[in-house]
């Protein structure tokens, strides 16, 4: 079951196509990475999903139903550029935003108390936003995004501007929410965070969906059959002939007691290992090198840009 499903979504501004026939679906209860270079159309997509704007064409389904603005109450959205009313008090502001998300006053107040106690900021209730540091404001913003317990959480660069301690706090909160079954769209440029957090990704470039799928599956798809070998002692000199004599393997790079070897099509990693052992190489480690999401991102986007 998908929490969100997009079918051939199109959005045009003036003459620019911001979203160009994008389709993907987000399985319920997953953390989903929405990736793409600047200006790729991520924000436009998010605005369509949050009902801020409407798609020109295509279909969107939220939890199986055609997306309507009423669904915005089941979505929590934290935009990249954070915004709060600077002159308003923390408590009032959060109450206001929670009620706009459809919570009743009493309910909103109780939940906010819980959240603020949990984040140890209960004593800020009567402080004005502009009296708080940037990091503190982020916490307030995060609470405002999740207080109505949305089914889908959309976080645009949620860790930007946070110190490592608060980053960890928010990270564990996101995981906690995810454990409770909340689906999360996580939009970022920081690929190491994608690897750490996401199970599924979609990569948008120039308004188009250029890559989508499960992170592990994508890595599998993009892997180049490169293996990293660590060894002790010296490497026999005849190993250099490995390329010449046998076209099944080729050395990609060579560093101090470490080799990267590509197993060409038709080759087998076991053959490589056997070959090395036969030659008397003392092997300490042998593992497959999977491409990082960062590598995949750059490869796909650059390749796409050349084509486009």
């Amino acid at each position: 079951m998908n929490i969100l499903q997009l079918e051939e979504v199109v959005k045009t501004y003036d003459k620019t196509v911001a979203v160009d026939h994008v389709s993907f679906s987000i399985p319920k209860g997953r953390i989903f990475g929405l990736l793409g270079p600047n200006g790729a159309g991520k924000t436009s997509l998010i605005r369509i999903i949050t009902s801020i704007t409407r798609a020109d064409n295509g279909k969107l389904f939220f939890d199986g139903q055609p997306l309507q603005s009423i669904h915005s109450e089941r979505i929590g959205y934290m935009p990249e550029e954070r915004g709060l009313y600077k002159k308003m008090k923390v408590g009032e502001q959060l109450l206001y935003l929670a009620q706009l998300k459809g919570l009743q006053y009493r309910d909103a107040r109780n939940r906010l108390r819980q959240w603020m106690t949990r984040f140890e900021i209960m004593n800020w209730w009567n402080k004005k936003i502009d009296e708080l540091s940037k990091g503190m404001q982020q916490k307030v913003q995060f609470i405002s995004t999740v207080v109505h317990e949305p089914d889908l959480l959309i976080l645009d660069e949620p860790f930007s501007g946070l110190d490592p301690i608060n980053t960890n706090l928010i990270k564990s909160e996101i995981r906690e929410l995810n454990r409770k079954g909340i689906s999360i769209i996580f939009s970022t440029h920081r690929m190491e965070q994608v690897e750490e957090m996401c199970e599924h990704i979609v990569l948008i470039n120039q308004g188009r969906n250029v890559l989508t799928g499960e992170v592990n599956e994508i890595k599998e798809r993009f892997k180049e059959n490169i293996f990293r070998i660590e060894y002790s002692g010296d490497l026999p000199s005849e190993l250099d002939a490995m390329d010449a004599g046998n076209h099944q393997f080729s050395i990609v790079s060579r560093r101090d007691h470490s080799l990267r070897v590509k197993v060409e099509e038709g080759g087998d990693s076991n053959d490589l290992l056997r070959f090395l052992i036969q030659k008397g190489v003392h092997i300490l480690a042998f593992n497959e090198v999977l491409p990082s999401i960062n590598d995949i991102f750059i490869r796909v986007v650059e390749g796409d840009d050349i084509q486009g």
Binding site: I52, S72, R82, G83
Partner: peptide
Amino acid sequence: NRIVEVIISSV
């Protein structure tokens, strides 16, 4: 302030 984006994702 960009608060407008937060608000209009609700109304």
